[in-house]
Structure formats: structure tokens, C-alpha cells
Write a protein that binds this DNA or RNA. Structure first.
Lengths: 249, 249
DNA sequence: ATCAAAATTGCGGGAGTTTGCATTTTGTGT
DNA sequence: ACACAAAATGCAAACTCCCGCAATTTTGAT
């Protein structure tokens, strides 16, 4: 593996986990710890991370005016959202949940579409602000800082008054028995409200979310109209889901 | 084989595998490594790939997952907000309007302060999300895309129910006779509501806003408790404002 | 067709990089 | 203060790169 690739691997892992451990990286990359240390030192010199005893930490620059959102597996997500674009038409009212898949979706919405979009995700609202033909309503509430979304009773209240054509809902986990499930209780409640206010429910997620489970239920699989993954709709891994009669893109 | 053919072979392999290795390409193409290197350097010069030690990598345009806010006269604004930090104490409830001066302020709030902050500005909410001890409430509503703030009746309604210790209010324009004035009607209404809900009103702005006027009134000078500029409080340009009895930092 | 200039290629060798190991130094927790 | 892990240092081997040069091919003009 090329050194430059190692550096991107390290930075990627760092962004995902906030820290990296020298010994782990040596195993991951199948290299001596010496080399890993040299890599870390080099990246430290370039101010891309902060080397500490035992590994390295993510640098958080307080000075920059840029807000960065890290998107993992971006190519897969691009494949997903391009398929989902076919669901959009002029004059629809849409609710979008948070999550990076939906953020990629926001990036791909064509400029000419005239839509009304409700969202409670800050990055998605920022992204959609670039589109002149979108009527954009940001749903306010208490900020959940880690996910950059608002949560709580205020969000539920606003959602309950909307009548939307489609909601696009990210997924933490999905399986045939329990349907959609979430890590956080508050987010699960918000998603329930989204579903209740929408005529059609679409969930987009990467295939690694398939057949996984989280503590808080959102809805049964049957309540979803369409799911979109990066897989071919005929893929074996979707077999069980096809049998439920759900639409798969 | 022609050079152009080699180049397309290299680019194709690069797109397929994200990287190419000089020695592998020399074998694939049955050429000396020197020639491969020359090819790679040439493609690098044309910005079609990124040459690295040992091979080359795909150039990936950092597709904008970054949201950038341009801040003019940032040094002046830093001077202002550092003075204003003295107004903050643990357990205060604060309302912040939009504007880049307030954004700089958000960047300078110390990590240890425990505050409850209401804002209707997306960039400010993003910035404040980095602070673990802040209870952050984003006020939702229709997005005004140009300013990255929410406006409208929803914002007013939320603001009217708050009882805040201080509000930090940006200024489009200020003069002794008319007080604070705004370009947009909607923003002027929101700012009136902010003021009505706060015990103390602080306005921060750069000195170029002094003695200017906009169409929509926000409040009389007397309604402000404190103004903060980058000037020395004894500066001649603030003479008229000092006479009104307003506090100047 | 002929020739010269320009471009391309491979090679030798020197310079520069990278890597793992041995050794020494430094840092951490008990 | 101690033991032990992590890091820095020095070093040699292997690898990669670049320069100049000569051989070869291509190009373009006569």
C-alpha cells in the first residue's frame, strides 16, 4: 500500500473514531509500529492531527469558518440517492430526517425542482439553502449536538401539524421482524411523528444496516412504502424484504 | 503502444482501483519504469491524477461537505467579541441573533461556560454545537436562505415565550436618532421580539455601522443596555452615543 | 524520397525515500 | 522509585526517483 493511502486511511479512521492507537494501526495496515509512528508524526507536522502518547487525536480547529460533515461510504450513498431522485416531483411537500444519506440526497436534488421541504437537520438545511426553488422550513427544538439535529416536544409538535406527500427517513437499523429501530429514544419518537404525517414513507440506507437491530422501535416494515439501498433490487440479501411486498429501488 | 493509449489505460486502471503502482504499470504495459513515471508526471501536471511516492492516486474533488461562511473584517470582530465575553456568566439564558459578529462571538465562548442559548441562525447553532456545556435551542421557521436564519411567525412565537437574561443582537445600522434599523422587515420584527423577551440588550457591531440608517426600525437607542464596537470606549466617534448614557465596551 | 529537428524511450548511476530493526531515551501508571 | 510501554534515534537495505545521454522513432519541410 502506498504511503499516501495509509495517510488517508489514518485520517478516515481518525475522523470516524476521534482517535487512533498506534498499535492498532500497525495491525490494521500490517506495518511496523515505527512506520505508523512516522506517519503520525508526519501528519502531525502538517497539523492534520495531534500526536499523543500511544496514538493520535483529531484536531479541532476553532478558528475555521467552515463546518465539516464527514460522510462515510459516500459512493454507495450516491448510488442510493440517485435511485431515489425518481420519487421527486414538482410541488411535493417533503419531510427529511437527518443522517448523512439524506445529506447526500440533498446534494443531489436538481436545482429546477420546486419543493417544500421540512427538516430538523442543520447540515441538510444548510445544503438545501443553496437551492433557490426550494421552500425550506427548519424545524426547531433542542439541539442534539452529536447528530446536528433538533429533537424534543417542539419538533413533534411541528411535525404533527404537517401533511406531507413523502418523508425520507434515514435508518440506524432495519430487519424484517422489528422493522426500523433507532439508537436514541428521542430520535425514534421524532421519526414516528414523521411517518404519521406523511402519505408515503421512504427509507434510504446502505446495505450494512440490513438485519441489524437497535433498542428503540420506529415502525414495522409494512409501514414503509419503499426502501432504497445501493444493492441491485434483485440481490439475494434483499430476498426476505422482497417477500414482505415492500417496494425496493 | 502509443502514449495516448497508455494514458487512457492508466486512467482506467486508476478509476477502477483508486490507485496505481509504478512497478505494476511497467509490467502491465511492458515498459520501463522510467517511462511510466514520465507518464504519471505528465498526467499529474495535467491534474488528472495525483502522483505520490511509488505510484499515483485518483484525484477526488472534495465535494462540498463543507459549509463555508465568509466573515469580513474578522480581526475587528474578534476585538469586539473578546470585550463582550465579560458579560457572560454560568447559568445565563441567552438569545443570539444572526450575523457574522455573533458567529465570531460564538467561536470565542469558553468551553467551560454553562449557558442556555437560543438562536435562529444556522451557522451559529453549528458553531455552538461544538461546546459541550451549552444547552442549545434552535428556533425553527421558514429559512431565509441568504442570511442562513429562520424568520416568520414561528420564530416570533417561540421568542415571545422565552425569558432571557441577555440578548446579543447584531446591527445592520445604528444612529443616535433612530436607534437600531434593519434592511429586512421580517428580521426587524424578529429582533423586536428578541428585545421584548430579554432583561438586558447588548448590540455588537463594527464602527462602520455607526451613523447609518435602514428602512425598518428595531428599537430606540435607549432600549439598548450596552453596545460593543472595536473602538476604544473613549473614542471621539462614540461621543454622541456616550451622551445618551448607554454603556459602551 | 531525404534530411534535420523534435519527441520518445531505456539505461546507468547518483540522489533521495522508505522501512524495519537494534538501541537508547522518554513517558505512564503503580 | 520501579517496571514496562511507547517513542526517538541511528543505521542499513531496499526501493523509488530524477538527470543526462544515447539510441530510436516520429514529424514536418523541402
Amino acid at each position: 500500500m502506498l504511503k499516501a493511502q495509509r495517510h488517508s486511511y489514518i485520517m478516515e479512521k481518525l475522523r470516524a473514531e476521534q482517535k487512533v492507537v498506534t498499535t492498532d494501526l500497525a495491525v490494521d495496515l500490517d506495518l511496523s509500529e515505527d512506520t505508523v509512528r512516522r506517519d503520525l508524526n508526519e501528519l502531525d507536522r502538517k497539523k492534520l492531527l495531534k500526536k499523543v502518547y500511544g496514538g493520535a487525536l483529531l484536531i479541532k480547529e476553532r478558528s475555521s469558518n467552515t463546518f465539516n460533515v464527514h460522510i462515510s461510504a459516500e459512493e454507495k450513498k450516491e448510488k442510493i440517492v440517485i435511485k431515489a431522485l425518481s420519487l421527486l416531483h414538482d410541488d411535493q411537500v417533503i419531510i427529511m430526517s437527518g443522517g448523512t444519506t439524506n445529506l447526500v440526497f440533498a446534494k443531489f436534488i436538481p436545482e429546477h425542482l420546486k419543493l417544500t421541504i421540512y427538516t430538523y437537520s442543520l447540515p441538510i438545511a444548510m445544503q438545501l439553502s443553496k437551492l433557490p426553488n426550494i421552500e425550506l422550513i427548519l424545524i426547531g427544538g433542542k439541539m442534539q449536538k452529536s447528530a446536528m439535529v433538533t429533537i424534543g416536544i417542539d419538533v413533534i409538535q411541528v411535525l404533527s401539524k404537517i401533511r406531507a406527500d413523502i418523508c425520507f427517513i434515514g435508518a440506524s437499523s432495519i430487519n424484517v421482524k422489528q422493522g426500523l429501530t433507532e439508537v436514541g429514544y428521542e430520535v425514534s419518537v421524532v421519526k414516528k411523528a414523521m411517518i404519521a404525517s406523511s402519505d408515503k414513507v421512504v427509507s434510504m440506507f446502505t446495505s450494512n444496516k440490513l438485519n441489524t437491530k437497535m433498542p428503540h422501535g420506529v415502525c414495522e416494515l409494512q409501514e414503509l412504502d419503499t426502501i432504497v439501498t445501493e444493492l441491485d433490487p434483485d440481490d439475494d440479501r434483499l430476498e426476505k424484504y422482497r417477500k414482505t411486498g415492500i417496494k425496493i429501488l
